[in-house]
Design a protein around this nucleic acid. Structure first.
Length: 223
DNA sequence: AAACGACCGATTGACAGATA
DNA sequence: TATCTGTCAATCGGTCGTTT
């Protein structure tokens, strides 16, 4: 079975058993281009991003800026890979990033293309699982259990975006809570709770969804 | 059989300084 | 100013032996 299908099944089963609505928003995969590039090129046309493009700047935020040498984009999709120089002088390692899988203002990357990318790379190192709720989450309740960090812009303006950088759950690197409607200009009230989950071994698929649910329940006001 | 990793070498790209 | 050129960084493909 395809990796994407396995991930989706895993989450869907959890959702059914727990009356939950978790979705995948992003997927990241570290890989070596040596034996994959040819197959990836077969999917479609990859274009190099301009040095000054702001997508590139955004993407660099999540990796060490220094080790990113260039970024390739698959046509007009939210599917990219970063080239890295951390294995210098081989320049073979790259990180695939597929994002915006759960969004409302634009259509997400086509499912069959995402599926194809995953079946070529045959791995997943990192995924973001999210839950959207139609009201503002009870962030105060979380403060009893976690250390929260509020996002402050460069100009010193504090925003309604909050982070938990230490979640106690080893596979959950970070939690982000933000105003999704504001971010995407939606005409409704919508907040997103997002967990950045690392997957040490895709062959032993286990996602800390129960741990994530504990946090989303608190944010819904269920103590 | 298919995927993988180490090694080699050829080609392309980015950038700076020299030249016209 | 526009073009050329040298240098080093970045990228990619091929082979070959090893793992899965």
């Amino acid at each position: 079975m395809n990796i994407l299908q396995e991930l989706e099944n895993f989450i869907n089963e959890f959702n059914q058993d727990n009356n939950e609505e978790f979705s995948i928003d992003s997927i990241r995969i570290e890989f070596s281009k040596q034996h994959k590039k040819k197959k990836l090129d077969g999917i479609g046309k990859w274009e190099k991003l301009q040095k000054n493009s702001n997508i590139l700047h955004k993407l660099k935020n999540r990796l060490g800026v220094d080790e990113v040498t260039s970024v390739m984009r698959l046509e007009k999709h939210n599917i990219y890979y970063y080239n890295s120089n951390k294995d210098k002088p081989k320049y073979r390692t790259a990180t695939m990033v597929i994002f915006g899988l759960k969004q409302y203002h634009k259509s997400p990357p086509p499912h069959h293309i995402v599926s194809k990318v995953l079946s070529i790379l045959n791995n997943v190192t990192n995924i973001d699982i999210c839950l959207d709720i139609p009201y503002k989450p009870k962030i105060e309740l979380l403060e009893n259990y976690f250390t929260l960090k509020q996002f402050i812009t460069k100009d010193g303006v504090s925003t309604d975006t909050h982070y938990i950088n230490n979640t106690n759950a080893s596979m959950i690197e970070k939690i982000v809570i933000y105003d999704k409607a504001l971010k995407n200009g939606l005409d409704c009230v919508l907040w997103r709770i997002e967990a950045l989950i690392s997957i040490p071994n895709i062959k032993v698929l286990a996602l800390p969804l129960q741990e994530f649910k504990r946090i989303t329940d608190l944010l819904k006001g269920i103590e």
